[in-house]
Amino acid sequence: MMIRNYYEVHGTFNGIENTILHNRIEEMRAKTEMSYSDFLYAQLGYKKIEHGPLAKLSFEELSEVRALYITRQNKELAKMLDVKETGNINSMFKDAGIPILSYRLEDWKIAPKYEEIVKLLSFYYKNDTNLFCVINNRPLPMFYSLEVLTTKSVNIQKMLDVLMADKEINRALAKIKYKKGSKLFIQGKYCITPVNYSDEDKLLIQRKALEIACFPYSANLNKLFKTSQNLLFLSIQDNSKYLKVLDFAKAIGTTYQEIASTYGIHLPDQMPVFNKYGVLLFKLTKDQSYVIDASCDEIKCPYKEKSLMFN
């Protein structure tokens, strides 16, 4: 888990040989026939491909082609794998046992006259913990409701159609209200603006704000982890989907930690605490944290209370 945390924070294993982990890594690696790099990537969950063009790759190279694949960069992928046809790439990954879920990345396009209000509303919908929405007769935080609802489809535009048609979501949206000479701000579920937007403008603004709140990377990553709190232990709960998030992070030049942060989850660098106390500390809420010590193994820690010291 410390090896995973190092990669989640840095997006690379560069420098890990200079940490307290190095001797332990070498001790464990000596029991295998893997290179130092392959051993590290194996701890993330990457596995040797037995057949096909992917079998010749090191684990680091495999992570690179997976990053190209998940963002549909097929021309670059074909060049790296030295294959002429891009049409059989899906079957190549499927035959290798790699989930074929992928995303076409698109740049957010917001007209200048909408940009400021869209950014304000999207931040409000994603981050205000006092904003609630009723789902199945239960009042739930707006950000959580959006996460739950957006796992039903990979198609972003179809999902936005569903959200915009949902009566409870509409009730929770801030009402856009014009006030001449005012600054742009939100108060009491009203978004006060100095611009007199038409009803058509308001619908467009709300849709775009929801789009950015739900899909900050222009991709429905929610499908991989369902709710943001699962990002903390996704590597254990569903390693296949965890690897997909790592692939996506590599593809867009960011880290797993940064993606978690975008979804409101603080995933700390565990090295300082591990150096001093030999444990991993996950603070979940103000009054709740998990401490994982050396007695916790990979199978037990997400499920057995005995292996998780709850504070």
Rank of each mutant, 00 (worst) to 15 (best):
M2S: 06
R4T: 15
N5C: 14
N14G: 08
E17D: 15
N18A: 15
I20Y: 10
H22M: 08
I25D: 09
E26F: 06
E27T: 11
A30S: 11
E33Y: 06
S35G: 01
S35Q: 01
Y36M: 01
L40I: 05
Y46N: 03
K48L: 11
G52M: 00
G52I: 00
P53G: 09
P53N: 11
A55I: 02
S63I: 06
S63A: 08
A67F: 04
L68M: 05
Y69C: 03
N74E: 15
K75G: 08
L81Q: 14
D82E: 13
T86I: 09
N90T: 08
N90D: 05
S91K: 15
M92L: 15
G97S: 13
I100V: 15
Y103I: 04
R104N: 12
L105Y: 05
L105P: 02
E106I: 01
W108A: 08
I110R: 00
E115H: 05
I117Y: 04
K119M: 07
L120Q: 15
L121C: 11
L121G: 10
Y125T: 07
Y125R: 11
N127H: 14
N127V: 09
N130E: 09
F132L: 02
I135W: 03
I135Q: 04
L140G: 05
P141K: 15
L149Q: 00
S153N: 13
N155T: 11
K158Y: 14
L160V: 05
D161N: 04
V162H: 05
A165T: 06
N170C: 09
R171P: 03
R171D: 12
A174E: 13
I176S: 05
S182F: 01
K183H: 07
L184F: 10
F185R: 12
G188T: 03
K189S: 06
C191Q: 12
Y197C: 06
S198K: 01
S198H: 01
E200G: 12
I205Q: 05
Q206H: 12
R207K: 10
K208N: 13
K208R: 12
E211F: 08
E211R: 06
I212P: 04
C214G: 01
C214V: 01
P216F: 07
K223L: 11
K226I: 09
L232K: 13
I236N: 10
I236D: 10
I236G: 09
N239Y: 02
N239P: 04
N239L: 01
Y242N: 08
L246T: 00
F248W: 00
T254Y: 01
T254W: 00
T255N: 05
A260S: 14
A260G: 10
Y263V: 14
P268V: 07
M271Q: 14
M271C: 07
P272A: 12
N275L: 14
K276W: 13
Y277D: 15
L280P: 02
L280G: 05
T285E: 14
K286L: 07
S289T: 04
Y290K: 10
I292D: 05
I292T: 03
A294V: 10
S295L: 07
S295M: 07
D297S: 14
I299T: 02
M309C: 11
N311H: 03
